[in-house]
């Protein structure tokens, strides 16, 4: 019993202290067997199509929201370009999709997420065209839906807006990479132990790398949300984020 405990502490220490280059970003070009690539693309497609419809509907009803939509996209653009060092000795990047998911809904944000992923796949050879469907699913669908759901749930539970935004963006980020781990595990099950053993393999490194980054993403999303709650309160009311008369500007401690 004692030994087991000691072993797990040791394993944890190793995990933290031994620098290990971890796969902690999008799935690379060609690195999913084509059946899986097609599978994820087929799952992602309807969500993105629905997202396009939902964006054009929202913009038609409220053309004044166009700039804010641009901000949501720009935020994801900046954040996914920032490769930040993490405690495992490798770097990974935030996704920035939590903000747009809270503002415009997860499906709408999935479209913007896909644009970011396309940019990186085509110009940076980061991620890929064949793995686009899988990466859209993890970052722009799971990430956005988790962020959106967390935000709604936290608000309902009476948690302050700043904390709710933080939790939403952080969990969205974390779940994106958990999803990526499972996608890789499904495509590459270990010979012994199968999918779960593979998943544990990808996850152990991932989870630790991603935790500080998830926190960073949460904090950065709160920063921009603080600004929006003061200067774009009208738009936030239009988007049903704030109720009329609910001004969160200055008393928003996050």
């Amino acid at each position: 019993m004692f030994n087991k405990k000691l072993y797990s502490i040791w394993a944890l220490l190793i995990l933290f202290l031994v620098p290990e280059s971890a796969f902690a970003m999008h799935i690379m070009e060609g690195f999913l067997p084509y059946k899986w690539a097609a599978f994820w693309a087929l799952i992602s497609l309807p969500v993105v199509v629905y997202g396009v419809v939902s964006i054009s509907k929202k913009m038609k009803e409220n053309p004044e929201l166009k700039l804010l939509l641009g901000v949501a996209g720009a935020f994801a653009f900046v954040l996914s370009a920032l490769k930040i060092p993490s405690v495992t000795g490798s770097s990974s990047h935030p996704t920035g999709v939590g903000l747009g998911a809270i503002l415009f809904g997860p499906a709408a944000m999935s479209v913007l997420g896909m644009i970011v992923l396309l940019f990186q796949a085509i110009l940076l050879a980061h991620g890929g065209i064949t793995t686009l469907g899988a990466n859209v699913f993890s970052m722009a669908i799971v990430g956005t839906f988790v962020a959106y759901g967390t935000y709604k749930f936290a608000k309902k539970a009476g948690i302050s807006n700043g904390i709710a935004v933080f939790l939403a963006a952080a969990f969205g980020n974390l779940m994106t990479y958990v999803t990526t781990s499972f996608q890789l595990a499904l495509a590459f099950p270990a010979e012994v132990g199968g999918v779960m053993a593979s998943a544990v393999k990808f996850l152990t490194i991932f989870a630790v790398t991603q935790i500080p980054l998830a926190i960073s993403e949460g904090l950065l999303t709160v920063v921009i949300f603080n600004f929006l709650s003061k200067y774009s309160s009208q738009e936030l009311i239009t988007l049903n984020i704030f109720k009329k008369g609910e001004v969160l500007g200055d008393d928003n401690h996050a």
């Binding site: 290990e20 280059s21 796969f23 084509y34 490798s90 770097s91 050879a125 065209i129 590459f188 990808f202």
Partner: peptide
Amino acid sequence: SEFGGADGAAEEMITEINPEYEPWFSSFW
């Protein structure tokens, strides 16, 4: 550590799990 982006390490881990896997597509550019 060099804090590598570790795209290469993904490759390593996948080849470790499945040594026969060959990426079937590579970036246009």
